[in-house]
Design a binder for these strands. Structure first.
Lengths: 212, 212
DNA sequence: TAAAAAACCGCATAAATGTGCGGTTGTTAT
DNA sequence: ATAACAACCGCACATTTATGCGGTTTTTTA
């Protein structure tokens, strides 16, 4: 049995969904709300597996609703309801923590499938949205990993890492079994290669570029 | 007309795909390779819209192949071919830059649809994989944004940012129109709040925790 | 095998930092 | 209205850093 909650301001749609869900074996509508505020206040008391949430709501909108709901119950599976298929809003909703989305005129059988998919740990979404989603973290990976490391040697990275952990020259020297002057020398080279002139700048650049 | 390339070591499957693609109007197979090496060396010369790549290849495997192909031609759309539906490998492929994936026994019509979706900027994938993908950057956002900022005030973050940009105390003071002693004071408080004892450590911690 | 790069060591010194102490003023929350 | 906090300012001083110069030895690469 999948326990579903509905947050949708249009009473016709809300009752329609509710009837569909209650009329299907294996599904049950355990809550039905016209706005996020009511939903959020009831959320702690309810046993909900999947929440269907409209994006365009009066008061707290769907996106904000997702964020707040996840703060209250991080494990909650939320499926967004939207009028437009490919909008930036859908993307934002997913970022905020929604698990998938449905277009409002989705046929009932597909709707029930989607609820089930979410319940089982999937995220139903169109391939267009999926592309947007994966491109975001491909960029992250590109920035974080594939970028060149400014020609830093392994030893230099090691020194840089120690710096970022708060070690001073003497401590780095001790932990690497080298002299302070050598540490100094490495750091000099690091500065040259990164084009910086202070520890902080070097560390910041190295972390931001994914070198360490 | 969608120009497709195939990288697949099994000659039966390869020829089957090739025949399917060439036999469908609007699709054309412009290259067919038994391994990544050959594909990668030909890639610069070919006009390819979508590449179908097997994951389990001899020599350079599909995942590595995706990475290298994207280095050569970042705009290339790659669709992975896989035997297993929900594997970590598929997820890795998407991270590496693939645009979607197909299970090998996908019916021809769905296969052609998927190629078209990729060509049009989508990313066909199952909802299970989609969930894995979005959960990754939801975590990123959670780590990057919602995490507490150790109670740092706006001013303190401002100072910290300047530090990470290589400014020294005097330069920070000048750019914020405050005295060096005040900068010193802010940094003192930053150290207290972050439990660190040097610029580098503070900057590293702040960046890694997404505070700045 | 010669050249290049990495890793190592040393000394000197001006400049910058970390940390101790002491304050005032204005805003926000209880 | 009293406390808590942010933001501001000041002084002193030991420690640490940045940067200049000079080297040697080993490993990698052309």
């Amino acid at each position: 049995m999948i326990n579903v909650a509905i947050i949708e301001d249009n009473v016709i749609i809300r009752d329609g969904l509710s009837a569909l869900i209650n009329g299907t074996s294996g599904y049950k509508c355990v809550g039905s709300f016209g706005n996020c505020e009511n939903f959020l206040s009831e959320l702690p008391k309810l046993e909900i597996d999947v929440a269907l949430m409209d994006i365009g709501l009066p008061g707290i909108n769907g996106i904000e609703g997702v964020k707040k709901a996840r703060q209250i119950k991080p494990s909650l599976n939320i499926l967004m309801l939207t009028i437009y298929k490919e909008s930036k809003v859908v993307f934002e909703a997913l970022c905020a923590g929604a698990c998938g989305y449905l277009v409002k005129n989705t046929p009932p059988s597909r709707l029930l499938d989607a609820i089930k998919e979410v319940y089982e740990g999937g995220s139903p979404m169109s391939s267009m949205i999926a592309r947007q989603v994966i491109s975001v973290f491909q960029q992250n990976n590109a920035v974080t990993k594939s970028k060149d490391d400014y020609g830093l040697s392994d030893r230099e990275k090691e020194v840089l890492l120690k710096l970022s952990e708060g070690d001073n020259y003497q401590q780095i020297a001790d932990s690497l079994f080298i002299s302070v002057d050598t540490v100094r020398h490495h750091i000099r080279n690091i500065y040259k290669k990164l084009h910086v002139h202070s520890q902080s700048e070097a560390v910041a650049k190295a972390i931001r570029k994914g070198v360490i």
